[in-house]
Design a binder for these strands. Structure first.
Lengths: 297, 297
DNA sequence: AATAGACCATAAGCATAGCTTATCAAAAGT
DNA sequence: ACTTTTGATAAGCTATGCTTATGGTCTATT
């Protein structure tokens, strides 16, 4: 192999040429003059040719003139790379892809992302909304950097950072006989027409499993589901976060005894680390949830 | 300013990735494993982000994957530059421009250049032929790297390396009454019709000055000059090297008492050094003139 | 399970690269 | 002739970059 050029001596050569003297360059670079003399002499020996004339000091040899623009170019490329990597490493540049369950995407992410782009304006964001199972799968497959979801299943390859608990409750028409209660128990719903939805799987293997086990209604689309409920055609369960805040015809009554919650947290790959920009997003989310604001609106 | 990347640790990262392990890379690079560990840890700290996963060793982090191709690119550019500069420094690549007097260009340069391109096939050559004065001017102005000529005038900015002496003699027709002499003296030519040429200025300020001072013939073009002489229309003087070896109608008779010579040598700029390729050409010329061959044919 | 082997991290020690200050010699300005 | 400015050189210090030795962890093997 050939020789190994170090970046620093190349800078020295450049500075000497610009300043026209070793002393001037040394002053500019906050180095002593012998430092430059020695570094440049070493470089000249490595190359096998002097770069500066021995008589008219500060003047380049023809070989030096050949080298100078090439030195400048390598330095330029080095500096560009160093700056770029710094930016990326500090999460000031790059791309985050994340997947969340729809309720988080519509209720929490707008706030999170507003805060995020305020702090990191040059990061591109890619947000998918999927059900909890799919969110976990996408994280596990590396299709997204991170997810916000309830834990779907214990998975070796996923790590879970808890954010908050989301109460599960009954959604029913305001005119319903149970609508004004502070809380409800499962057995009070046995006679109601239950419409299952995508979040109903949260009831499986719980005390309330019977609600969803034997029924014929299932509506995955949230708009359709709400329309059914608004028409008074039945009741359903939803996590509180999934219940639209501004709905006038429906109300949300928490269930109790046993109280049922879904755990919402950040899903990350267990064995890989996050990209710097994903780390930045995670920091922003954690700060907003554990900071002064406390519980999200 | 940002950080300063060194080339070597980047190579380490690349090798670890290629080998899939620190140990393997260390073996390949003839370094100990801790050397890599420490160098890479240092790099990671400078960047502010780990490049390799802390759990699955030898695996890149997303940030590492971002960095890897960029590292490779910088290394590639570094190596290309290093190789290029090595070539140029050792005169194995580049361009030489030189100027010589016509006699040297036609009689000596073919041999010199043949030897030169055999040894340095990748150097471009640029050969000008001009009179001695102009050769010196071109060297002084930096229009050419070096010249081969007689010294025209003492010049601060030029350095002269002597190569050989070139006898000046009379050129006349074979049928001329003086044609068979071993040597001639100036006064024997007084009655002859003298045709001056570009080299006649060599006679100025010598014992033979009178020959050129009062005459009406001057022919600068060598072909025309020789045609005149072959027609028996006069005589001239030439340095021996300028006299065509294979001419059948003319002959060359050296002048003596005082013997007159021109000094031929290499003209270089005094204060600038030569480009590496020009140095290489100079070496070849000196070797051929001082080597076994001795006097040129 | 226990053990051996492979891997990476850490610690201690050493050579040298890269800088400093001090001094010298040469050239340029006064 | 003298002062100033410049680059080279010498001696010395510190940090870098390596080494060997050792310890901890994970995986594969028995």
């Amino acid at each position: 192999m050939g020789i190994e050029l170090k970046i620093q001596p190349l800078r020295y050569v450049l500075a000497v040429w610009e300043e026209g003297s070793f002393h001037g360059a040394a002053r500019q670079l906050h180095r002593s003059q012998p430092a430059l003399s020695m570094a440049i002499r070493d470089l000249e020996e490595r190359l096998g040719q002097p770069l500066f004339e021995k008589s008219l000091k500060g003047q380049l040899t023809p070989f030096g003139e050949y080298c100078l623009p090439r030195f400048r170019e390598l330095i330029r490329q080095h500096d560009r790379l160093a700056r770029d990597l710094q930016h990326v490493a500090h999460g000031q540049q790059g791309r985050v892809t994340l997947a969340t369950v729809p309720s988080v995407a519509s209720r929490l992410m707008p706030g999170f992302l507003a805060a995020f782009i305020a702090e990191y304006p040059d990061i591109n964001i890619n947000l998918h909304d999927e059900n909890a199972e799919f969110v976990c799968r996408m994280v596990a497959n590396g299709e997204v950097d991170l997810g916000i979801s309830s834990v779907w299943a214990q998975d070796e390859h996923l790590s879970y950072t808890h954010l908050f608990e989301d109460n599960i409750g009954v959604v029913l028409h305001r005119d319903h006989r149970l609508a004004n209660r502070d809380s409800l128990q499962w057995h009070e719903l046995e006679k109601e027409r239950f419409i299952a939805n995508g979040t109903s799987r949260l009831l499986k293997n719980t005390a309330a499993a019977s609600l969803v086990d034997n029924n014929d209604f299932y509506i995955s689309n949230m708009i359709s589901l709400l329309a059914m409920l608004e028409a008074g055609s039945g009741i359903t369960t939803l996590p509180r976060l999934a219940f639209p805040v501004d709905n006038r015809k429906l109300c949300f009554v928490p269930l109790s005894e046993p109280k049922l919650v879904r755990q919402i947290g950040i899903i990350k790959p267990a064995n890989r680390s996050l990209s710097p920009s994903a780390q930045a997003l995670e920091r922003v989310i954690l700060k907003r949830l554990t900071g002064v604001t406390g519980w999200p609106a």
